[in-house]
Write a protein that binds this DNA or RNA. Structure first.
Lengths: 354, 354
DNA sequence: CTTTTTTGCACAATCGATGGTGCAATGACT
DNA sequence: AGTCATTGCACCATCGATTGTGCAAAAAAG
């Protein structure tokens, strides 16, 4: 409580105050004092002094000396959608519960940015890194390896480090099947009735497209190439693809698979340009779960990826230090329309809730 | 490119390689070499060596010595909703563009956690801190001040540091007015037709409730206290409030104001328990913008808070070092139903978009 | 009352970068 | 040639913590 605006207390200050040496103070404050055979009384004395002066360790100094920082990084492509923001939320909670400090950064799907950001994290001696949805996981891997940083890929796999990803193939199968079955309620379904929008040439998109096509072939007997419309990940591009389809066909496909919630925002932009009623009968499957997306005015089947399981598995991999780079699949979950799942926020206590 | 898995190069390594002293190397690599009158040829030589060896500065060492880190912190209550995740996205971009490194952390609306997290950030000598939506801004302020850390409150104001917040009163007025006007399309509206759900006893909620009540009084002549249902911020509690209302009234209010998108998720949970058609005619106003929320099967008016302007203003305040703690209001924007606004993601380039 | 063991702690090097200071070499000028 | 200013850089203390090592004093053993 002493000293507002004063410099922060250091072990040297406490050393003078307590009459012990800095090393003793250090040992007491970092918990290694038993190993160092410090008398319990001494430890207590120093601990009390530290508390009284609001001592907190200078983590940069500690990190410099010990070349470990207690930081665990999560590299995201973007924050601004429910899949990644809930992943960040889960990550924070998990890292905190392990007594470490979470650091989340985004790199905007830019391979160069990804490497730079990771370099920066390395400069802070982070202890572990979760690389989520990286455009160039192997590029990041190289940077990490050079620095001896343990890391794991989440969501998009790399070839050089272990990865934990959704079973995109299976998820896509579930989703495609669900929208086709739903469409069949209104009569027979032809291959040209079912489209896929969004995604690009990354592993997840490829697997989802593969699952989509496989189910279409087995349920509908065919899958014309025209039904696959990879638009990239931007809402604007996706909206344009819907608009183009609409212009040439006079309607949207009867049912379609949207590659991610970001692409689904593209659908919103399209819808905003057109009267409400025109699209009351479309059926949508979206690979990603967004609670509001689930309640749109037409049936939206969604896939909820289990980011909690992915992060947890990621930690397990980092601890196991497996040598060969393996890829673990986490099963995603099909979410029927109008479903409000609980999320990471639900574990928070809501103080003063009235 | 040399050395995979080797230790990172330091200025000492480069010092040996270049035949210069460490301080010269340091000066060259941190850009202060002109001030230090280093020959250009020497600088070039060292720079080339550094590039060749992939040198990156150890930021912990630099931070320790200079007691500045280049880090700028953003403290969030949670990640997992569009308001805060888009704030994080904007923050990242802005900080990056200033050549600093963004660090985003969440504290789960827990005052104790808030202080602890900030202590940790301080231990890393962060240069500036944005405190967004803190439950106890003044508590955090105390911690910051003790460490001489420049900081600014965003979204929820404190009394001891400057703040940048939405004009919640005005936003609530706009929103309330919009839903009342919309409701009047179907006939006269009584005070008991319009409710407010969500929020708790924080500044934002209070201001919103004040705006809500003021508009109701002026447009409808009254505002019974029963129409205000502060449920806290959790979806579960909010859902319970809707359920309770429904049990006792046999329906939902004709129109209602929902305090935040998190509370709006509570509405989803309620809806999921009930048949679709029952609620086709409700009118909702939500204080927060979520693109999917805007397209729900009933009219949803939303308020989009301008987090970009808030962050930008926050930087301006930090730079100006204003002494008296002032509070700046940023005007939010009323978003009519079925509107897809573009967000921070739209400025990203989407490479490989096919 | 020695010798050995254990206890309790102090010393000092170290992590990597920064920045004040000092000093030799070079050039400019009288 | 002697003085002075300038250029170009090296030296060294410093930031705050960690950790291997050494050495007294106290306790135990002989």
């Amino acid at each position: 409580m002493t000293g507002i605006g004063k410099k922060k207390a250091t072990i040297y200050d406490l050393s003078v105050l307590s009459g012990s040496s800095p090393s003793t103070v250090s040992a007491v404050l970092n918990g290694s004092w038993r190993k160092r055979r410090i008398k319990e009384a001494t430890a207590k004395l120093i601990q009390n002094l530290a508390d009284a002066h609001g001592y907190t360790a200078n983590l940069q100094a500690r990190g410099l000396r010990s070349s470990r920082s207690g930081l665990v990084g999560l590299l995201l492509p973007v924050y601004d959608n429910r899949y990644f923001s809930s992943m960040a939320q889960t990550f924070e909670a998990l890292v905190r519960s392990r007594g470490q400090c979470p650091v989340v950064v985004s790199a905007c799907r830019d391979p160069e940015e990804e490497r730079q950001v990771v370099e920066t994290l390395i400069s802070y001696s982070i202890d572990e890194l979760f690389i989520a949805g990286a455009t160039d996981p192997d590029g990041v891997h190289t940077v990490c390896e050079k620095a001896g940083l343990r890391h794991v890929n989440i969501d998009l796999p790399g070839t050089k480090a272990s990865s934990v990803i959704s079973d995109n193939f299976e998820g896509a199968r579930l989703l495609t099947q669900a929208i086709i079955e739903h469409a069949r309620r209104d009569g027979p379904v032809a291959p040209e009735d079912i489209y896929l929008f969004g995604g690009r040439n990354d592993h997840a998109s490829r697997e989802r497209i593969r699952g989509f096509r496989e189910v279409k072939r087995s349920m509908l007997g065919a899958d014309p190439d025209a039904c696959i419309q990879p638009t990239g990940y931007s809402p604007a591009m996706t909206a344009r693809a819907f608009e183009a389809f609409y212009q040439s066909h006079g309607k949207l496909p009867r049912a379609f698979f949207v590659n991610s919630s970001i692409n689904l925002e593209g659908l919103l932009r399209f819808l905003a340009q057109h009267p409400h009623e025109t699209f009351a009968d479309i059926i949508v499957g979206c690979y990603d779960y967004d609670p509001f997306g689930s309640f749109l005015p037409f049936p939206v089947f969604m896939i909820r990826q289990d980011s909690e399981a992915m992060i947890a598995k990621g930690f397990a991999i980092l601890e196991a230090k497996r040598e060969p780079a393996v890829t673990h699949l986490i099963q995603p979950m099909l979410v029927p329309p109008r479903t409000a799942l609980s999320g990471p926020l639900d574990t928070l206590k809501d103080v003063d809730g009235g």
